[in-house]
Each structure stands twice: as structure tokens, then as C-alpha cells.
Design a protein around this nucleic acid. Structure first.
Lengths: 153, 153
DNA sequence: CATCTAATTGCAAATGTTTTGCAATATCGT
DNA sequence: ACGATATTGCAAAACATTTGCAATTAGATG
């Protein structure tokens, strides 16, 4: 199966674009920083390899990836206006994103759960709407953090 | 049952705060503009009654309402960094927000569906996490807009 | 009802994140 | 290796939201 970078490279070429060193670094970062990095986190990471890279290059690349279905932007309510970028494995499929966000350790945990898919089908069937993307986010305290800070007696 | 404004007024008083004309207007707007207005939309609406009101007053009031559980901020992915404010009927209950957002008419439709509550319980039971809030958003094209723009043959 | 004081306001400037215009640079087909 | 043009770095702009501060005002008190 084609790697993430190879997939992106094919698409860049197909559009008459060019695969630059900067883009390669940003794609690497997206794989290295498993999870949902912000543009700034990606920027800090790629700076190790290329201290001259510019934040706007990071943004421009991320936007291109977004438009072409390779990453999907995400907002978490405790971070208000800061965008996070979620690499997408199957570009252009219906995007479904299920996250748990821990208020204590700030970890973002991805999960899947057949009930959500059922929910989407049910909503579409009930209302006649066409669903293109689904976002389901739970906020709270994860099991580990709950253990560390037991409720006071 | 106590009206929204009365509920807020009680709380303001309880905190040693003051119920100003501006706050009253903003609360009215929140009721008039059923849905999920942005700060700017609220601002434009209250300007009819008080042309001198300031946008920062709107923001400050909304933040106070948020901290006190009377509104809940919401982001929709097609609007990136713009916040919308959702009045909350039962302050401080576990907040659960289920929305459908139509890409064509931009309408935000609220719905409820027992499966989501089940999902939350299931996730909590499976992982041991404690859930404090749930956000479920479907994006797509609503039945009406689908009818207006049938797919090309 | 007049007074007093702290809460709230309007204003302007600041903030933080993301975007953009443009000249310089670098990729890739030839 | 060359040349057209896509992409970059930079600095400045855009944009939503927040903040400091002096002026105003709600509402408790006499």
C-alpha cells in the first residue's frame, strides 16, 4: 500500500505541483507527531531539520493538504481558536472523526464505535439529509487522570 | 418556570453583579435570534435598540454567561475560527450538543437521539473515563437543499 | 431622593492565529 | 544546463477576540 508521502506526491504531481523539501518535512512531521498537531507544533518540529522554514509555508502546505483531503482540521472547545490537523488515511471518503479529549492531561484519544455509524445512517434516513462528514467529540477526564486525582471525601 | 432572563438576573445578583440595560438587550437577542448566533450577529441585533453598545460588551457578557453555564460556545468546521453561542436551558447539566449543519443553506438544526446518550455511557463504561460534555455534529446537505439542487444526470 | 462605591461600560489598543502580496528562489520538464 | 512557473520567506494584513483604563451607572445605603 502506498505510503502517505507517496500518495501526496502523486497528487502534487497530478496537479502540476512540485514536491519541495519543505513539504516533505511537513509530511514527515505529520507522521512523526502522531495525534493532532497544531500548525505551530509542526513548525517547531520541522525547524529541527530546517531552521529557516517559515510558518506561512507550514500553513500553506496544510491548507493544500486540507483541500486535497489529506488532513482534516479539528477544533477542541477548550482551545477555542486554535486549529489542529488530523491526517486522513483514506482521502475523500466520508470523514468521520471520533475523539475523546481529556481536560487534565489534554490528550486526544481517537476511537471508533459502530453505534456512531448507525447514528449517521439513522439521521440520514429520518431526515432525508445527505451526510458528508461526522464529528463526535467527548470531553472529560480520562481513566488515568481520574485515578491520579480521586475525588475528595 | 423561571424565564431565561430571570434565571440570569438571579445569578447576577447572587454574585453581587448588576443587571444593566446592555445585558438585558443581549439576553433578549439570545432569545430572539433562536439558533446559534455569533457575537457579531448579536451585536448587530442589539444595535437596533442601542446604537452605542460596544462589541466588547457583547463579548464580555457572553463570556460571563458561558462561565455561568447559560450559553455554550460552539464551532462549526466550515467557519473555522468563528465562535457561535448556544443558549443552555438547564445550566450545569452535562452539556450535550447535537447539530446538523447544512453546507448549502448554512442552517444549524438541533436534534436529539437516544443513541448518542447510549454511546456516551458505553464509552465511559468501556474506558473508565468521566464524560463532562458531548459534541456531535453532522455536516452535509439538508433534505430541502438536496431537493433544490438535484444531482446532474 | 441624594449619595456613594464598586461593577460595568465604551473606547482604543493589544493579542494570537491564520492569511496574503510580492520579490527571490528552487523544482522539474525539456 | 536552461527556463517557465510553482513555491518560498518575509513582512504586513486580516480577523475574531481580549484587555487596560478612565468614564459611567446600578443599586445599596442613609
Amino acid at each position: 500500500m502506498e505510503s502517505f508521502i507517496d500518495q501526496v506526491t502523486s497528487k502534487v504531481r497530478a496537479e502540476g505541483g512540485r514536491m519541495t523539501a519543505q513539504r516533505r518535512l511537513i509530511l514527515d512531521a505529520l507522521e512523526d507527531l502522531r495525534g493532532h498537531p497544531t500548525a505551530e507544533e509542526i513548525f517547531d518540529h520541522v525547524r529541527n531539520a530546517d531552521p529557516d522554514i517559515n510558518l506561512s509555508t507550514v500553513y500553506r502546505t496544510l491548507r493544500w493538504l486540507e483541500e486535497n483531503g489529506f488532513v482534516s482540521p479539528r477544533w477542541f472547545e477548550d482551545e477555542k481558536r486554535r486549529e489542529r490537523f488530523d491526517p486522513v488515511d483514506r482521502p475523500h471518503a466520508i470523514t468521520e472523526h471520533f475523539h475523546f479529549r481529556c481536560r487534565v492531561c489534554n490528550r486526544i484519544i481517537e476511537f471508533d464505535e459502530p453505534l456512531i455509524h448507525e447514528l449517521r445512517r439513522k439521521y440520514a434516513a429520518d431526515t432525508g439529509a445527505e451526510i458528508e462528514s461526522v464529528s463526535f467529540t467527548l470531553y472529560g477526564v480520562c481513566a488515568l487522570c481520574k485515578k491520579d486525582t480521586p475525588e475528595q471525601p
